[in-house]
Each structure stands twice: as structure tokens, then as C-alpha cells.
């Protein structure tokens, strides 16, 4: 009758991301923040040492967080705990897998360890997610074994403009695919530097073949609902919560906004009296450093 259970099948890796859909994943740097996020209704927390806004401010090399801190956060909450590894730093990913984090984010927010290669994510039992700016980048990451995608945006800016740009790029390209002739897909795949099989799959599905969240600049309930209406499955909020005046209240409001993303009356209600939003950075100002462009 029943056969041996199998771990880490593709359905299991993608499955956790499916359970996170319609939810908010929040960046937290310590146990207290993790508890605030859980109480607000986050579907998962991303444990990291500095939120992206602080990484931008303080500069230096940003690396994987202290495993002790990740363990403490894991012990403090019951929701899934994610953690970031540097791009191409597969040993950081191995360590995070051994720590038992629920998802790894191979993230451009940390200083890349390899400017050419990403981690081969097929080698891991723990599911790994990656960022993208457009369809080609998303499909290259999926080819490497990514079980979930987030559009990159610009982390730590509090400015949603790049998140919108990247999400529109992905969604628009998939819509354009629908009108393409089968013969045209080969050239298109070459142009966007993606495997043709994945391009075909996207055309057939009408969406990315894995769960797709938005990230990088979401700081208000309206931002979150905007990303949902653009068609993502959920949102990451990094600096936007704990760099604001009233993190607990803002976190709760963004959670509500993602559920009721299509209901402007409710959005208005949850957006009221949230206190100061994070200050934010204009991505066009001189000297702005793009994190999204740190990987291809």
C-alpha cells in the first residue's frame, strides 16, 4: 500500500511557496521584531542582521546572518523562517540548510559572492528563491532550480517604482508571449537568454511556473495592494515596516491590504493613521546604488 515518503520533491518545494500565497513576508532582525511580525499576521519572516535600508546606510559587505540569531528567531516564532545567502555563495546556503531554515533567499541585497554564477539550487533539499527584473532573469533562476521567484525592486528604498517596473516587465512579457507563434519562441528565448522549454511553459501557463512575490520598496498598504493587482502572489516587506513610526500597526495594515487588495474601501480603512512611513530614497538621485543590477 503506502510507499516510502519522499522529501524535497518539486511539488514539496513549490508547495510551501503556494501556502504563503496571499501573504506578507517580513524582514526582521531580532526576536522582538519576529514576534511583532507574527502577531501582525506575517506568513513568514526573513531573518537578517540589517534591514536593507541599514545596509544602504552603513555600506560595507553584507553577508549571511549569524546562525545564532537565525536559531533564536526560529525558536521564537511558529511561522516559517527564511534567511538570505549571498548570490553564488553555496556554502552559506549549505549552512542555512543545515540550520533548518524553511526557505533560502539567494539575494542581491547581500553583496554577491560570485558575479557570474548563481548557486545550483538543484543540489539542495531546502527550497531556494531568487530575485528577477524581467522574464528572462526569472526563467534563468528557475532553470537553476529556484522554487519561488520575487521581482527584485530596490530593497531599502521605500520606493515602489522599481518593484512596479520589474513586475510589469515579467507580467507584460508573459502577456506578449500569448500572442506569439510557436516558431517565434525560439528567437524570443534567445533574446531574453532563457531556456526555450521554460518560455514555452510560460506561454502555456500564462504565468511563471512557480510562485511569484514582489519585493523591494513596498512600504504602505497601498503599495502592497498595487503589487497584488499587478498580479503577484504575495509581497515581501523589508525596511518598510521596521523603519516606520509604528511597525506593529503598519505590519497589520499591510497584511490586511494583501488579503483585500481588490477592495478600495477596506484599503482606505487600513491605511488610516499609520504614523510615519519610512523616509525613502529617490532611485534617480545621483550616486544611487542599484542592488537589482548586481546580478543577471
Amino acid at each position: 500500500m503506502a510507499q516510502q515518503p519522499q522529501q524535497a520533491t518539486f511539488a514539496v518545494k513549490v508547495g510551501l511557496a503556494q501556502m504563503l500565497k496571499g501573504g506578507v513576508i517580513m524582514d526582521v532582525t531580532n526576536v522582538e521584531e519576529a514576534r511583532i511580525a507574527e502577531e501582525a499576521g506575517a506568513v513568514a519572516v526573513m531573518a537578517l542582521e540589517r534591514v536593507p535600508a541599514d545596509i544602504r546606510k552603513n555600506g560595507g559587505v553584507a553577508r549571511m546572518s549569524d546562525p545564532a540569531m537565525i536559531k533564536a528567531i526560529k525558536a521564537a516564532v511558529t511561522i516559517p523562517v527564511m534567511a538570505k545567502a549571498r548570490i553564488g555563495h553555496f556554502v552559506e546556503a549549505q549552512i542555512l540548510e543545515a540550520l533548518g531554515v524553511d526557505y533560502i533567499d539567494e539575494s542581491e541585497v547581500l553583496t554577491p559572492a560570485d558575479e557570474v554564477h548563481h548557486t545550483n539550487k538543484h543540489n539542495f533539499k531546502v527550497p531556494i528563491l531568487c530575485g528577477c527584473r524581467d522574464l528572462g532573469e526569472a526563467l534563468r533562476r528557475i532553470a537553476e532550480g529556484s522554487a519561488m521567484i520575487r521581482t527584485k525592486g530596490e530593497a531599502g528604498t521605500g520606493n515602489v517604482v522599481e518593484a512596479v517596473r520589474h513586475t510589469r516587465a515579467v507580467m507584460g512579457a508573459i502577456r506578449a508571449l500569448q500572442t506569439m507563434d510557436e516558431d517565434e519562441l525560439y528567437v524570443y528565448a534567445k533574446e531574453i537568454r532563457a531556456p526555450v522549454e521554460l518560455v514555452k511553459q510560460c506561454k502555456q501557463l500564462g504565468r511563471l511556473p512557480v510562485v511569484n512575490f514582489a519585493a523591494g520598496g513596498v512600504s504602505t498598504p497601498a503599495d502592497a495592494a498595487l503589487m497584488m493587482q499587478l498580479g503577484v502572489d504575495g509581497v515581501f516587506v523589508g525596511s518598510g515596516i521596521f523603519k516606520s513610526g509604528d511597525p506593529a500597526k503598519r505590519a497589520r495594515a499591510i497584511v490586511q491590504a494583501v488579503t483585500h487588495y481588490n477592495n478600495p474601501t477596506i484599503l482606505g480603512e487600513v491605511s488610516s493613521s499609520l504614523g510615519e512611513a519610512m523616509v525613502g530614497i529617490d532611485c534617480r538621485q545621483e550616486g544611487f546604488q542599484s542592488y537589482a543590477n548586481r546580478s543577471e
Binding site: 500500500m1 510507499q3 515518503p5 526560529k74 533548518g100 524553511d102 526557505y103 527550497p127
Partner: peptide, 12 residues
């Protein structure tokens, strides 16, 4: 426990 222990199987 953690996601790494998640699995799929066939049940009667």
C-alpha cells in the same frame, strides 16, 4: 518540523 522535513507520499 522545518520545511526540509516536508514530504509527499501515497496513502491508502
Amino acid at each position: 518540523g522545518a520545511q526540509i522535513n516536508s514530504f509527499e507520499t501515497q496513502l491508502g
